[in-house]
Design a protein around this nucleic acid. Structure first.
Lengths: 244, 244
DNA sequence: TGCGCGGAAAATGTCAGACAATTAAATGTA
DNA sequence: TACATTTAATTGTCTGACATTTTCCGCGCA
């Protein structure tokens, strides 16, 4: 665990990088214990607070966990799907919101990815996820539902579709695309008319999955993508007009 | 920026969360300056080292950047695509390596996602990315190329395909899936026979993109997926036999 | 008046030492 | 043997100090 680069400042970043590298390329394995803070401080010739800052950086990335007490310390942490999901969603959301990504771009990405999942979801047809989809469709038909709740339900529906593919790696990669769209979708005002349209398409998609008809699922997803796009563009246009 | 949860220990995590929430849900905007460490310490009733640990956590997620000197401090950082890529790739790679994801699962996810990009790449047919693909195909045909280099070239080829869709959000989401596969692919020994097969399929894919023939691209990607899967399964089998 | 130069000030980066809190192992006792 | 107690190791936090970097402001000088 040597390797001290010579970039002048930010010792804690250098130390974090050295340890991170050791973890990423397998020189340290899951649940292995790191040296104590005092030992690391001695090893890198820095003070304990500096080492601690480095360790906190790694903790923020879920690379280590710490235990207090005797024979405690920092341990290499097994990255769980849940934590990876969370990090990915946070990053994706920020990426979209901070870089003023166009609605069309995000929408295109999201539906392209979802359409990749649909055939697998149809093939596997998981009853749990199908039930979730049906439940969310029902909720979306309730009158008096706020736009935000409608959006949240939409996200849940699509997450169920993605998870229905039964591939956790796929679910992880797509979690970001689906969830990060929510803030953009929240700008849309869903009229009764558009809700009906969406619910119909959702129903068609759920039916197709249930019937294991990948082709039909794809067609309806494509239509939903096109429809969402027009809704989004209308909303963007209205915002633009209002601000001028 | 109040909100102090009551979980007992780990003050720095609580403070980091409070600030992160403020950034994520837009109460702080890009390039806005955070209070100085001393001010934050006073605000949260903790010492400066504790505040610093919290800030380092945020820095590790590229949420803030710091500047030294007068009128320096911590600023909300605009998350760039490059940094988001990097974080996503690191997380994806660790997720796969630490959770013993089956080769089949990762492979299925990767090709499902790539097939989602292919129609867009075909439609847009970017000359730069096409040139990259051709160059990598040429490299893959060179005799004497190590397995590792072959893999690296394969990743570059597929990255070019994905980037060819011309959708940065899509590229970001897929970067993890493509790059994180590399360690798994590196376990495979590529015979001359299998390299030829792969190069042929790569060529067919590049041709299809160039001809804007989405259907042909999809078919060849599907075939490549199936072939990669058999290669991977062979390699896994050999490893299993060797270890028994 | 205009320009460069230097010091003051503000902020982060780093260090040293101390104490508190927590936990597991070692030790002692019934 | 089983249980309670001590002890040692380790992280969590605080205080105070100094080093370093950078900007701003005013001063001297042409």
């Amino acid at each position: 665990m040597k390797t001290e680069p010579k970039s002048p400042s930010d010792l804690s970043a250098q130390i974090a990088k050295a340890i991170r590298d050791a973890i990423v390329d397998g020189r340290m394995i899951v649940d292995e214990r790191l040296p104590s803070e005092a030992e690391l401080a001695a090893e890198f010739n820095v003070s304990r607070p500096t080492v601690r800052e480095a360790l906190k950086r790694l903790a923020a990335q879920s690379l280590i966990r710490t235990q207090r007490g005797a024979f405690g310390g920092a341990f290499v942490k097994r990255l769980s799907y849940e934590e990876a999901y969370g990090q990915h969603i946070t990053t994706s959301t920020l990426l979209l919101s901070m870089n003023a990504v166009r609605f069309e771009t995000a929408c295109e990405a999201r539906y392209a990815l979802e359409r990749a999942c649909a055939p697998l979801a149809a093939q596997r047809r998981d009853p749990d996820h199908l039930a979730t989809m049906r439940a969310e469709i029902h909720r979306q038909g309730q009158p008096g539902l706020s736009d935000e709740s409608f959006c949240a339900s939409d996200v849940t529906f699509h997450r169920a579709l993605v998870d229905g593919a039964g591939n956790p790696v796929l679910s992880y990669q797509l979690a970001g695309a689906v969830e990060a769209m929510q803030p953009l979708m929240n700008m849309i005002t869903f009229t009764e008319r558009s809700r009906e349209e969406i619910v119909n398409l959702h129903t068609a998609i759920a039916d197709a999955i249930e019937a294991q008809d990948a082709k039909a699922a794809d067609v309806n997803l494509e239509e939903l993508a096109a429809y969402t796009l027009t809704l989004g563009q209308d909303a963007m246009e209205k915002r633009a007009r209002k601000s001028t």
